[in-house]
Design a protein around this nucleic acid. Structure first.
Lengths: 230, 230
DNA sequence: CGGGTGATTGAGCCCGCTCAACTCTCGTGG
DNA sequence: CCACGAGAGTTGAGCGGGCTCAATCACCCG
């Protein structure tokens, strides 16, 4: 299974950590675009970044922490559409208003960019316009992969695919610290938190992964891949 | 629930039928772009238009008929990502290869456009580039809506939402002819064909819709909306 | 040491799946 | 005109994966 990150990756060196461990992340949005400078901002754990229906005024790039974007039905059912990790860009949607809600999963630092300014540059700079389109396309690709998962995968396959995706996005070292709760995972995978927990236990029993605490995961890559193979 | 068509609508007059009932559909892809002329082509029912992994050489615009795009797992599980109806554009994916398979649901006539040529024009014509981006964005929006459906909706809600979506895309008259089989609907909604059939029967019993034959549907819009309301 | 949050585990149930029989429609040919 | 067959759709019976509800456990942080 091929799960691409749904991110425009500018800060992350190929195959390296989520952020350069030493220096600060660059403040410009794109490498070739020094006139786009972001304003640093912070959100506390569980704080809303923007809500469904709000004006799409800013675009955000995560420096540290993590953000979820989701939709909620009137009766409380929630579908998380994606998780955004350090280096990821989010909040860029066509149209005047956000169709999703964005909330910080952990204490999160971001850089904010004026959407208007970004668009103004995109109309002039083909490079930037292309990067924006690529980002939207990558989001679409991720969504397509996720639809297959939601529509046709079993609970065990979903959880395994999720862990593999997270490992890939967090550096691909095979040893990760999940930033989100079981409930968040469940709402991302279209399951209940109990089923997620049971599936993780199952994977551990099958020696496909090892836990230390609930969130620290070491994966047995071959075994995990075998579960989700298509 | 707001379900947008995932189409770049150029041929369809606002609120009108899928195609102007009289004249032929225009042969150019975009209204303001007469140099892009498509070649007519036809596919028989169940014929493949392109397969997963093939080169993305052409973009297609449907003149008549219908096409599904899907992914299939090794064990036969299939997820249909979308249906493409007259006036819709499909086959435009970033990257060198198609990530989805496209097949004709019914005998279908299309116009084919060289992807390369389209991209060449897009780099020069901001208007066209913007339309392409809007199309990708609309596909993404549709995908987001669909993820909520696949992850958090009941079978009855899914089927009701599907009929509403089809009505909207087929003219919004409240009386439609479904071009696809129960199996196709099932693979779109992440259900089995039996469950789709049962749900349709249920909706009929609840007076939310009326059938004549399996594919001709007249909907009771208020009752249908009540079922999927969020 | 409690207290609180998050995660795990257990027991039972139900929605949607599986398997199977039946019906309906429609095209073909006698 | 009906007979027939094939494919699509419907309906029924029973099962099971994932959900619900609830109890327990693990881990922080005072």
């Amino acid at each position: 299974m091929r799960l691409d990150t749904n991110t425009l990756n500018t800060a992350r060196p190929a195959g390296g950590a989520a952020l350069p461990p030493s220096g600060l992340p660059e403040i410009a949005l794109f490498a070739g675009c020094p006139e786009l400078i972001g304003s640093p901002f912070s959100y506390a754990r569980e704080e809303e970044v923007y809500g469904e229906g709000e004006e799409t005024e800013y675009v955000y790039k995560i420096v540290s922490g993590a953000v979820r974007t989701c939709r909620i039905l009137a009766d409380g059912r929630r579908q998380i559409h994606g998780f955004h990790l350090p280096g990821d860009l989010f909040g860029f949607e066509p149209g005047q208003t956000h169709r999703l809600t964005a909330e910080a999963i952990a204490d999160t630092r971001v850089l904010m960019f004026k959407r208007r300014q970004l668009e103004r540059i995109a109309t002039r700079n083909v490079e930037v316009a292309c990067q924006l389109w690529t980002m939207t396309a990558r989001n679409l690709q991720h969504a397509e992969e996720h639809m297959l998962l939601l529509g046709r995968r079993t609970a065990l396959e979903r959880v395994a695919a999720f862990i593999i995706e997270m490992d890939a996005r967090l550096g691909g070292t095979g040893s990760i610290e999940l930033p989100m709760s079981r409930r968040d995972i469940a709402d991302y995978l279209g399951l209940t938190l109990e089923t997620v927990s049971r599936s993780v236990s199952q994977l551990q029993q099958d020696r496909a992964l090892a836990l230390s605490g609930a969130r620290r995961v070491v994966l047995n890559r071959p075994a995990m891949s075998r579960i989700v193979e298509d």
